[in-house]
């Protein structure tokens, strides 16, 4: 297989008394969708923020296309070509949609913002995502939760990234929008991007992910090829035991246990 575009090893991160990540490793190849799985509080969002430079790691190394790099600030990650959609959305409520889409990467000529160019590009981008939003010049505070999520996703695509990280991108979305985001993830993969997807929805993960990387209590707890792995195996890795609440419930209610993790 090709060289990983992004490879982490020995990542540790501590918040006060909480060791959120210990010695975590992760790699993503171009054209691969890696699902990052784990229970609530397992450290998934923390790992994403480490990679994105929002909360840099205490220790550990990061290889980008084989070269060691340091990501100390969000701008470092953006320059490498890492785009991030955060779980706690990172939009400025007082700015309009266009301003939010281009935040930190505004187009300007001779120091003056190119509002026309940005609005047209924003319109094209949102149209290509089939998003219907009445006006691009309303503050994002007036949008619904799902619309805000789509804006955040759209924003990450503007910078021509090589790796896209999505932290629970479909949690707030309707059926059609969820399908669109999954389509989008497949398109990104087909274009040769590396995708890191965090989701609690096993159906979504099975639909698009090539590999599943499980975190448990801030440590690596398994790395599976999704095709060859059963649902039960992944759940066991997430919960840390073959005897877990999901298995017990499946035995009790005899529901075909394949929907939610």
């Amino acid at each position: 297989m090709s060289e990983p575009v992004l490879e982490l090893s020995g990542i540790s991160k501590r918040f006060g008394a909480v060791q959120a990540l210990s010695d975590v490793s992760l790699r993503v190849h171009p054209g691969e969708v890696v699902a990052l799985l784990g229970d609530n509080g397992a450290g998934k969002s923390t790992l994403v923020k480490v990679i994105a430079g929002v909360n840099p790691a205490d220790t550990g190394t990061l290889l980008w296309e084989g070269r060691p790099v340091t990501v100390a600030r969000p701008a470092d990650a953006q320059q490498l070509g890492i785009a991030t959609i955060y779980q706690d959305l990172a939009l400025c409520d007082n700015l309009d949609i266009v301003a939010n889409l281009f935040l930190g990467g505004e187009r300007s000529t001779a120091g003056v913002l190119d509002e026309v160019g940005m609005e047209r590009r924003a319109r094209e981008l949102l149209d290509s995502l089939s998003v219907s939003i009445p006006s691009l010049r309303v503050p994002v505070a007036s949008l619904s939760g799902g619309q805000r999520q789509i804006i955040a996703i759209a924003r990450s695509l503007l910078g021509e990234p090589k790796v896209v990280m999505l932290d629970e991108p479909t949690a707030a979305l309707g059926v059609a929008q969820t399908a669109q985001v999954l389509d989008l993830i497949e398109r990104l993969r087909d274009q040769g991007l590396g995708v890191i997807l965090i989701s609690h929805n096993m159906a979504d993960v099975r639909a698009v992910a090539d590999r599943a990387m499980v975190l448990r209590l801030g440590r690596n707890a398994g790395d599976f090829r999704v095709e060859d792995t059963s649902y039960e195996e992944i759940v066991a890795a997430i919960t840390g035991a073959a005897d877990n609440p999901v298995a017990r419930r499946a035995g009790r209610v005899a529901v075909p246990g394949s929907e939610e993790a």
């Binding site: 969000p74 701008a75 959305l89 400025c92 007082n94 935040l103 120091g111």
Partner: peptide
């Protein structure tokens, strides 16, 4: 009309969002 002004509004709206967008 300028990037600087946009950044001032962004920091005033949400400093954390501005930081994650790569604004100093």
């Amino acid at each position: 009309k300028t990037r600087y002004g946009r950044m001032v509004f962004a920091v005033g709206g949400s400093a954390e969002a501005a930081r994650r967008a790569g604004i100093n």
